[in-house]
Amino acid sequence: MNHKKVALVFGGTRGIGASIAARLASEGYRVAITWVSRPDRAQALMTTIEQQGGQAFALEADSADAKAIQAAVDKTLQQYGRLDVAVVNAGVLRLGTIEDYSLEDLDATLAVNVRGVFLAIQAAVKQMADGGRVITIGSNTAVRTGHAGSSVYAMSKAAVASMVQNLALDLAPRRITINNIQPGPIATDMTAGIAEQIVGSIPLQRMGQPDEIASLAAWLAGASSGYMTGASLTIDGGFVL
């Protein structure tokens, strides 16, 4: 039996999620990643991980679909036989002011960013070894004022922070820790077109890098973080607006 630890990264094919998956693989985890719209990126990431000596496989799973979330956990167990770390990175960003925000966008945001996060955690911890790790990827908008049109997104991320704080109590008897990373502006393809507008609001005068978020996630996944649970860790260069 292969005793190497296993990590499942929901939303692991680009940006922060891909960096986390690659980092965990480099530290010896066997990694499963979910994708919803870019199988080519999932395949490219798997190839990179395998070329570097790691193990990875990808599976399609829409985080708005409860059955798909459960299937992702089940397939990870079938593939690797265990689950030690769950990283819930999947999310959607739909912006708009309250005058124009549609019910469709509201429902879609809550379905993935809140309901999907809860369901992913629920499905994962039922199969997770005692002493496991759950890591959610929230946003600094949960604690910082963003900009007009971001209220629903910010609300969803604040809900995740509160969820994590309280789920820590549910999971503590099994020594499963759960923590929430709240990134600020990160240099990914999603922010490429607006980076110059954002940098002025960051005291460190630069965008964060996906690898910096991955480093924090890797620490939270490891043994050294065993006394931290229920925390939301904001990593945003001191972002102000």
Score class of each variant (00 low, 15 high):
His147Arg: 14
Ala148Arg: 12
Arg133Cys: 05
Ile194Gly: 05
Ala192Trp: 04
Leu171Ile: 07
Leu204Ala: 15
Ser224Glu: 13
Ala168Pro: 00
Met228His: 13
Ala221Leu: 03
Ala187Gln: 15
Ala231Gly: 07
Asp211Met: 12
Gln209His: 15
Gly230Leu: 10
Gln165Gly: 13
Val125Gly: 10
Pro185Lys: 07
Gln182Met: 15
Ala159Val: 05
Asp189Cys: 04
Ile194Tyr: 02
Arg175Val: 08
Gln182Cys: 12
Ala161Glu: 03
Pro173Asn: 09
Ala172Cys: 10
Ser224Gly: 14
Ile235Ala: 08
Asp130Thr: 06
Arg175Phe: 12
Met163Tyr: 13
Gly230Ser: 05
Thr234Arg: 03
Ala129Asn: 09
Asp211Pro: 12
Met128His: 03
Ser201Thr: 12
Val160His: 01
Ser215Trp: 08
Ala192Phe: 04
Ser201Gly: 14
Glu196Ser: 15
Ile176Gly: 05
Lys157Pro: 00
Pro185Val: 11
Arg174Phe: 12
Thr136His: 06
Gly226His: 14
Ala221His: 03
Leu167Thr: 12
Ser201His: 15
Ile178Asp: 06
Arg175Asp: 10
Gln197Ser: 15
Leu220Gln: 00
Ile194Gln: 09
Asn179Trp: 00
Thr229Asp: 01
Ala221Gln: 01
Ser225Met: 07
Thr188Asp: 08
Arg174Glu: 10
Asn166Arg: 11
Gly230Thr: 09
Ser150His: 11
Met155Asn: 02
Asp236Gln: 06
Ser201Glu: 14
Ala159Phe: 02
Pro203Cys: 14
Pro183Glu: 01
Ser151Gln: 04
Met163Leu: 15
Ile178Cys: 07
Glu212Ile: 12
Thr188Val: 11
Ala221Lys: 02
Gly208Ile: 11
Gly131Cys: 06
Ala148Leu: 15
Tyr153Ile: 04
Ala231Tyr: 06
Ala172Asn: 09
Met207Leu: 15
Thr229Ile: 08
Pro203Gln: 11
Asn179Arg: 02
Ser215Val: 13
Met190Trp: 03
Pro183Asp: 00
